[in-house]
Amino acid sequence: METENNKSNIIEISELNKWYGDFHALKNINMSVKEGEIIVVCGPSGSGKSTLIRCVNFLEKFQEGNIVVAGIELTDDAQKIRKIRSEVAMVFQHFNLFPHLTIVDNLTLAPIWVHNETKEEAREKALKFLERVDIREQAEKYPNQLSGGQQQRVAIARSLCTSPKIMLFDEPTSALDPEMISEVLDVMVELAKEGITMICVTHEMGFARKMANRIIFMDEGQIVEENDPVNFFKNPESDRLQLFLSQILTHDE
């Protein structure tokens, strides 16, 4: 178990085990995240990386182990879950914008209905964040009228509206056409520079190299290796990581 300076650990995962029926999806995961850290989780498909971060905001339930987020322990308690979800925001692979609402309404929904803000306040804040991700002019449009890259940026802005302490990214660029990936990564880089805690599941190794404090490699449901970016790529210790890097890096750059 990581014990370095527990006080500033904003996420603490210990002995986490999850099964899908008989399938052992997450095996004895131990992980801590300090406030402001940027963590990238990578690994082959089926390794459990999405499952892991979805456990953090209780979109997936787990059978054994312990997760503490921002000082609150994650159990099947509706109040606690709601509290945690207002501190933790998630950006999905398929954006999941609400198609029947305008862009700006997508953003103001949570502030109005969960945080009891006034319509004016919420709208002002929404427009500000839309400006942040450089998409202000689309405010009154509907999600299906936007491109994938634009939709994902809106999704990021939507997450920011709840002023989260932690942001989870579940393969945010995997569903995008290549020319749109950079516009989303640019936004993520900006966010990273501002000090928000981020956990990203992604294949974008350029982003990992540039921005991550730590990269975690998962395979077959367990954490195999973790390291700082420099050593992660230059000195992979385990065989599986070496294999993984050899497979993806030949296609990168």
Binding site: D22, E225, E226
Partner: peptide
């Protein structure tokens, strides 16, 4: 920074299946 040993695959806890 750290490399973990191979974790074993287990059966889920009894009360969770069947």
């Amino acid at each position: 920074m750290a490399v973990n040993e191979l974790q074993s695959t287990r059966k889920p806890p009894i009360s969770q299946i069947g």
